[in-house]
């Protein structure tokens, strides 16, 4: 390797928690010495390892600009998007990287997302119109104030950092969890939506909002400024209201909503 003569190659130690199910009975740390420049992200550090040192290292990534939500991992113990975290901020190292906490590791830095994807579907993340409208009646109008109620909750990129920040999810992964519940709230709180009753059985179930104990770390780690803790906790009020008002005005059973 011939480096340009006017630059000194700086290196940083990157330790990765490896897990290869065909050979490891449990995850093991492996250390790499990585040449870096000031503009390199943690993801680029991993790419350097994979391209030039060890092709067996597995990790997910796609957009490199914090919008696809693929490259979430624990960087020095904190849930981070690795494309958005820079090696220069982690000096002098070593940088310890491991797969997102609270999820089962499939291979190296890759976690299983099946349950999370099921949860996303279970919250019915689409608008269930409050009133049927004909095409000729025109579009559904929304005021800026109505949009503001849902806007931040609609910024979720499904990166699952909030799940890696949620000890309740780590202890019981049946918990619907911060991300999916924030998405549920995004639709419930939409002025055009009338699906709250359909989402209520899941929302008020034991694995719904009541599994949350307001740790609040989910909202701290979100790279998109979503506040899942707020979405979950204000729905405890809605779930309680639904429970008690249900005694006063019995209504027809709604289908669905099981996790």
């Amino acid at each position: 390797m011939s480096a340009p003569t006017n630059t000194v190659t700086k290196t940083i130690q990157i330790e990765v928690l490896r897990y290869r199910p065909e050979q490891d009975s449990e995850p093991v740390w492996q250390s790499y010495t990585v040449p870096y420049t000031d503009d390199m992200s943690v993801l680029q550090g991993l790419q350097q390892i994979k391209d030039d040192q060890d092709g067996t290292l597995s990790f997910r990534w796609s957009c490199r600009m914090a919008i696809c939500g693929s490259c979430g991992m624990m960087v020095n113990g904190k849930p981070k998007l690795s494309c958005q975290t820079f090696l220069r901020d982690l000096l002098p190292g070593p940088v310890r990287i491991e797969a997102l906490a609270h999820f089962a590791i499939e291979r190296d830095l890759i976690v299983g997302v099946d349950k999370f994807v099921d949860k996303l579907q279970s919250v019915k993340p689409w608008i269930i119109p409050k009133e049927k409208r004909e095409l000729s009646q025109g579009e559904y109008i929304q005021t800026p104030a109505q949009l503001e109620k849902i806007e931040q909750f609609s910024s979720c990129i499904n990166c699952m950092l909030c799940y890696a920040a949620c000890p309740q999810y780590g202890i019981d992964d049946n918990f619907v969890g911060p991300g999916a519940l924030a998405l549920l709230h995004r639709y419930n709180a939409d002025s055009r939506d009338g699906g709250m009753d359909e989402r209520m059985p899941l929302l008020r179930a034991a694995e719904g909002v009541w599994s949350c104990t307001a740790v609040g770390y989910c909202s701290e780690v979100c790279p998109k400024g979503v506040d899942p803790a707020n979405a979950v906790n204000q729905n405890k009020v809605n779930a309680a209201k639904d429970y008690f008002l249900g005694w006063l005005k019995p209504k027809a059973k709604v289908e669905g909503g099981k996790a």
Partner: peptide, 20 residues
């Protein structure tokens, strides 16, 4: 064995992060 998801232990989870 091509698959074998590994679940990490939650023992002592609250010591993992100052936030916890």
């Amino acid at each position: 064995k091509s698959r074998g998801p590994y679940k990490r232990s939650m023992t002592g989870w609250w010591k993992r992060d100052p936030f916890f």
